[in-house]
Design a protein around this nucleic acid. Sequence first.
DNA 1: TTTT
DNA 2: TTTT
Lengths: 165, 165, 165, 165
Amino acid sequence: MNKVILIGNVGADPEIRRTQDGRPIANLRIATSETWRDRNSGERREKTEWHTVVVFNEGLCKVVEQYVKKGAKLYIEGQLQTRKWQDQQGQDRYSTEVVLQGFGSTLTMLDGRGEGGGASGGRGSAAGGNDYGDDYGAPAPSSSPSRAGGGGGNFSRDLDDDIPF
Amino acid sequence: MNKVILIGNVGADPEIRRTQDGRPIANLRIATSETWRDRNSGERREKTEWHTVVVFNEGLCKVVEQYVKKGAKLYIEGQLQTRKWQDQQGQDRYSTEVVLQGFGSTLTMLDGRGEGGGASGGRGSAAGGNDYGDDYGAPAPSSSPSRAGGGGGNFSRDLDDDIPF
Amino acid sequence: MNKVILIGNVGADPEIRRTQDGRPIANLRIATSETWRDRNSGERREKTEWHTVVVFNEGLCKVVEQYVKKGAKLYIEGQLQTRKWQDQQGQDRYSTEVVLQGFGSTLTMLDGRGEGGGASGGRGSAAGGNDYGDDYGAPAPSSSPSRAGGGGGNFSRDLDDDIPF
Amino acid sequence: MNKVILIGNVGADPEIRRTQDGRPIANLRIATSETWRDRNSGERREKTEWHTVVVFNEGLCKVVEQYVKKGAKLYIEGQLQTRKWQDQQGQDRYSTEVVLQGFGSTLTMLDGRGEGGGASGGRGSAAGGNDYGDDYGAPAPSSSPSRAGGGGGNFSRDLDDDIPF
DNA sequence: TTTT
DNA sequence: TTTT
């Protein structure tokens, strides 16, 4: 189990790169902040933490590319990962990032901002819900998409079943 | 470990009651919805799930009372709990709720809506951050509230310490 | 966002059923318990909560079928779902369950118990790690399975890449 | 929202230091690993990620000090935090850690190992349950510790209440 | 009964 | 009905 959950705001427009074989990679900076009232002084305090988020999942990269802008509020679920690299002096350096890649990774927009003018179909606009990348196939509805259809990886459950499980 | 995390919208203005000894209890109905595109038809699908949330924590009850209205988007972290009760026929019935009570419970408003007109200082308005009930004392800032002060339950960490841990 | 995380013990051997079209469904009862010391009396207290877990995901059902026995300790990640049904008097009843189905659902065994004698390949024995159902394909390793291979839904990241992202 | 959840094994006996004013700080190295079967070759693969965990919470430090040894399996819940420090060349360096401090932080032992011979009362032995640091007071039981007692920060809920909430 |  |  290695899970990171962040809700925060994007500090700058995302950078999207591509690997040599064409896969997209999105880099985001996310600020999470907490506020509290000081026990003694009663003053309001705030602390902000910045996180580097790296999106490898192609479907989620599309969401980032199309909808995520500076200031957007995001829900992020990924994994902690530390990379080793060498600086210009040849010294070992380590960077820890929140990686969104494959199973268990999610990115959801929590506000309406960032959407292009005429965006229809609204992937990325999922306010209060979850929108998944294309790679995942059907998520986990309890309603019944194509019960008869069956087929690989169909996770659906039919609520109309007359026998309560 | 018994944790529920919800991000969703409030279906109706919260109900606040009080126990005989005066403690507040808030009841909320929260809708979580997910959308996906059907594999076969390509149609957009949506499924909404409704949750009953019961807030026992006093600080969080205050937040609910003052700021949470129908339609508000909330982040909720609590525990699953099943109550047994008798219906009018004297039969055992069970209700499962998401309970916010004590350690590990959180409620954060994810939009600016729901705030009363002149609310200043904005507990409950924590966009992208966390606002905690009064019972918790200082949350977990890395900055340094009153290092010298010490005192019971001070969890603060001093980033200015010259020795990296 | 609708997520439940449980770590607890299985109260009885799981029941596995099959739908008419042959998909397996596993039912589990999981106990989560918390202990604390009473503030006033100093006595040790304990409270146990029981949860019904329904596994629709086929790969996870296999894990359950083969390895999960009464007493096993499990890590569970799923969604809250409430079913409506009619009792024998024709009255509406509701049951809330933790559903493991599709994206974002996980089940991991946290102890070595429950494994058959000669189990090889050890799905279900994942001590401290995660073992995923077959439906998910490769999870999210940072190591490099078949970089050149590419192919649909390959989430892998190559740590050997010479350019730090 | 800034949350990290880890389930993994401790790589070495923890180091405990104290600040100048006597507060304990525990440092842990935790390995999370995931295993999967390669899509193409069918071979079993494994990837391990190492995390630095810093425990500021006093109650949790006690648990670490008394019970956590190399090899122990832990459930950890904390926050991501990045510290800035200078290396010997005076260059800025950053280290990202999982910090357990105050609200929302938890550490639970998931196996029986690590307990001293005659440990009674078993804080730290909470297999399948939660054991909280002393700072938290009573956690969130639904049962009823001292309803009449009332008192600050009492989060208890009385299941014996005759009115179902 | 919410929201997009 | 589990576990410590």
